[in-house]
Design a protein around this nucleic acid. Structure first.
Lengths: 207, 207, 207, 207
DNA sequence: CATGAATGAGCGTTCATTCAT
DNA sequence: GATGAATGAACGCTCATTCAT
């Protein structure tokens, strides 16, 4: 995870100030536009919002996924760091899991269209998928494992699986006051405490 | 072409069987393309897949919603009829609910990609949403009410809510062997048996 | 929003040369295509004629009316300025009117096919109509009023009416050497000197 | 050329009653649709209005011009016959001309889009043009000649020219209460009484 | 480096015309 | 003959992406 603490790394650390500034302007603009129009917003809108040319967007973020990843990196890292912290501070691992999922939902729900972009079949977003998987899934798995080890939930589902479920439940939440993803996510997580329905998960009745 | 001096061998069709056949071809093609490209797939692709001209698609299904509803209709009606039947035949209402949800998932997952159509923010599909809501939601609600009345689950979620959750969990399942929507749905339904987490839904832990 | 503490003072920079050139190319191409195919010509044709992509047309002229108005503008303004000038320089107001109508016809006939755009029932060209009405009609009316005040013609027709008549007479003149719009326009204007046919205009002989 | 070998004469007389009836139904339907949607109305609309299949329209009227000619044949012939009659009944030839033009305008104005279809540059309507020219132009010329012979108008314009001018003035009259084609036509005809503007027609003031 | 003009593939949709039934 | 299903060219328009300035 390329920590560029100083300018001596072999990677191209941003040299010029104005370039870095432009990049930040772009990130801010993209974040703002993502809120308004979702992560599939026209590149033009982002450039316009940033007050830069379209070419500049492409220079800094060759693909849309690059931009999305960059925009949300900070939030993702917050989530990543929250995992161990919650585990340490919560009375039970299950509590920590609940709270961590809450954070994840907060994140997804406030980022218009992000949950949809995370869907596996969203071609061209492999970079984004990979980033999420690499960074968040281990944390989620750790929380699940801890809760399972404590006997608070049944094991049988992986962190990535759960995250994808949560992510999917968050799709389409914005713009629809009638849809409450948190209630559904709460149900999903609560379901972890129930014993697995006999045969349901693995066999689901089809030979 | 069609030198019809002699008996046309394939003229067995008395009426416009070819038309009905074309319609079915279109439905099949649409279902298939929906799997590949989602319900927003270009009309051209559907026409190409069906091996017909674009105009033919429009003739049979003037709007995209017409096509989607038609693709859905049969399975929806099967689900609708299954509701009361399961309630009558299952030992408990919760069992009936579980099984009914299984059917619903089977439906969504079998007709790959169609789950995406249920997402609220899919502009222009109000007709489709309405069709689903009108036909399926009452059945789901009935099952939920029965289970709640029997004390088997806690009440607090509507049939439509649950269906949307299940639907969302089924999105993106196709083409991804690593994603098991049934396991997640099982979790979701199992969660109904747990008491609602105190404050989870409404407060979700924001300090 | 781009805190521009320093730096680029590019504001109000004149447009790039190639851009202006492209715009002119587009105007020329549009005028030419309008001759051939009328103002409803496919945007693609105009783009092709100009040797640019379709997007370029839309960039410079977001709506078709914008393009047409731009094509017209120069000639319209010439006509507008000619009105008072002719009134000042001609021996009689009627002479001025005659000459002004000549200019108008020259304009319409020179820019072949553009006369069709003036027809009222040309849906979606309200902007164009408005532009013409706002700019030219007052001039024509002024000339008519002057001639009427001088007793050289009978009053009873408005400037806009006359212009629409002249415009219509110019429609379809191109590509048809047998059609002489000037002769007909001359007749129309000459008719202004005749006393109104009793009842002709208003009752037109229907019992 | 499928000459039926049996009894049917090859003469122009429509053979079967139902065929003739269909043709008439089509003409009525076309007339009605032309009023509503103009002579460029979709063929489908006409077929639907007639309650026949599209193919039937094409069988009877291979081109749109054929249909238009057939629909308006009766009115055209009325105009044709009115020429000599007016000449005989009116006090002056000019009066007859005025009245005949009135009839012509009545005809054009009530047939939505017909005037536009008569415009020379309306490709594919040669049949229609020819029909009008062959049938109406001689009558108009006759009236002009009579009036010129009587010294009531100056000669110098042909019947066809005048008709085209009148036709053009009638374009776009429908749907626009502000446009009064009759007033303009009256002006045009009145202009015939004025001496030709010296040089106007041929030189139109360009040195 | 930054710019934004230019490009053109791609989409929904209409409708004249053909041709199998 | 009659039918109307099928066809596909054509159009307006959008927007991701490239590239000359």
């Amino acid at each position: 995870m390329s920590d560029s603490r100083q300018g001596t790394e072999k990677a191209a650390a941003p040299q010029r100030k104005d370039v870095r500034r432009n990049k930040q302007i772009l990130l801010d603009a993209a974040a703002a536009v993502f809120v308004t129009s979702g992560v599939e917003a026209p590149v033009r809108d982002i450039a316009a919002r940033a007050g830069v040319g379209i070419g500049t967007v492409y220079r800094h973020f060759p693909t849309r996924a690059d931009l999305i990843v960059a925009v949300f990196r900070h939030q993702v890292e917050t989530c990543v760091e929250a995992g161990p912290a919650l585990l340490a501070s919560c009375p039970t691992a299950y509590d920590a899991l609940e709270r961590w999922i809450d954070l994840f939902v907060d994140f997804l729900v406030t980022k218009h269209g992000l949950a949809a972009a995370l869907q596996h079949d969203n071609a061209g977003f492999e970079t984004l998928h990979a980033y999420f998987i690499d960074h968040l899934a281990p944390v989620c798995t750790q929380l699940l494992d801890a809760a399972a080890a404590a006997g608070e939930i049944h094991s049988g589902i992986g962190g990535l699986q759960l995250m994808r479920g949560v992510g999917n439940l968050c799709v389409g939440a914005e713009n629809d006051p009638d849809y409450d993803p948190r209630a559904l996510v709460a149900l999903l997580v609560a379901g972890l405490r129930q014993p697995t329905r006999s045969g349901a998960v693995t066999a689901h009745g089809q030979p």
